[in-house]
């Protein structure tokens, strides 16, 4: 279900690693109801790559797939979004921003291509020991800055919309929250330019890229741009990444995932499917009970895996259960 919802591995495995040893193909099929109609979704993986189909036909692209299948998962490794390396935080931001605005995918792809092209230009020039054609550098910088400014703008716009929703959820989950929770975007553009809008972001990013020219030529790759940006979560003015306890980090990561669901429902009217991998063991009874009541209020379809039914803190009639034994599912 995680693969259907995200087209990625639950364990961050590469595509071929998800295929059973000795098999040529791995496939997952699911049926969902969207707009009152049943839709069949299928993902198949081969060594060549991944294919996805809706009602037996290939959709035009990823936006069509993700417009139909919306899923949010909370897994233990999500804690790393708060205290781990920046690429995990960028991934959360980009995925969540895309859920709200499908055009973000095209912008992010444009930025990635411009970045790869500029990196190739810098790398070749360094390897061959020849100066870079200034006009070539100028045009790739231009593409990088235009697309990059859009990426930064959409990311910060997402955080602006997301912050109040996060605060609402976080307050409920952390009974003894100390101080206001805030997101701070950190990177290639200063706070003032971020607040001023797209033209200011573009101008600030342009200045930053121009200033990095000598360093980039020396190192042979791009050092300025949103591909190296980060964001941090502060509670009561302190960055959670450095000062948060394990419990605070866990509550923050869970609040981010629930917040993603709440915001998606407010914007599109449809609540994504929520996948919880053994979360109950991670939370204390109070937080766990609050989480369950939040999920019931959201009227989301939720799938939880747990090794201890008591962890659920739900009335027996509030859920259906299945047993998983040696990879086989059977009704409880």
């Amino acid at each position: 279900m995680y693969l259907l919802g995200t087209l990625k591995s639950f364990r961050r495995a590469r595509g071929p690693d998800m295929i059973l040893k000795g098999a040529e193909v791995a496939s997952v099929k699911g049926r969902l109801v969207a707009g009152g109609l049943p839709r069949d979704c299928a993902v198949s993986l081969t060594k060549k790559g991944l294919q996805f189909k809706i009602d037996g036909k290939s959709p035009r692209g990823l936006p069509d797939w993700f417009a139909l299948i919306k899923a949010v998962a909370f897994v233990p490794s999500d804690l790393r979004m708060v205290d781990g390396p920046p690429d995990l935080r960028r991934e959360f931001l980009d995925r969540a921003a895309f859920t709200l605005d499908p055009t973000f995918l095209g912008i992010a792809r444009e930025y990635r291509v411009a970045l790869k092209q500029k990196n190739a230009l810098l790398r070749d020039s360094k390897r061959m020991g020849r100066p870079i054609d200034p006009t070539m550098l100028e045009i790739w910088n231009d593409k990088l800055v235009r697309a990059g400014a859009q990426v930064v703008h959409r990311r910060t716009e997402f955080l602006r919309q997301f912050a109040p929703v996060f605060r609402e959820v976080h307050k409920g989950i952390t009974a003894a929250a100390k101080g206001r929770a805030e997101f701070r975007y950190r990177g290639c553009v200063g706070t003032e330019a971020l607040a001023d809008g797209i033209s200011s972001i573009e101008a600030a990013l342009g200045t930053k890229v121009a200033a990095a020219a000598a360093q980039e030529a020396r190192r042979g790759f791009c050092v300025a741009g949103p591909h190296r940006d980060d964001w941090e979560l502060r509670v009561g003015g302190e960055p959670l990444r450095s000062f948060g306890s394990q419990g605070q980090v866990r509550s923050a990561a869970l609040s981010m995932r629930i917040g993603q669901m709440v915001l998606a429902k407010r914007v599109s009217g449809v609540c994504p499917l929520f996948l919880l991998d053994d979360v109950s063991s991670e939370l204390d009874p109070h937080r766990n009970a609050h989480l369950m009541s939040l999920l019931l209020d959201l009227e989301a379809q939720v799938l939880i895996t747990t090794t201890h039914r008591d962890n659920l803190r739900l009335d027996a009639g509030a859920y259906k259960s299945w047993n998983v034994r040696t990879g086989t599912l059977s009704p409880d």
Binding site: A114, Q117, T135, I139, D142
Partner: peptide, 10 residues
């Protein structure tokens, strides 16, 4: 495309 646009810009 990104490359087509960059070529035009050049």
């Amino acid at each position: 495309t990104v490359e087509g646009d960059a070529t035009s810009l050049y």
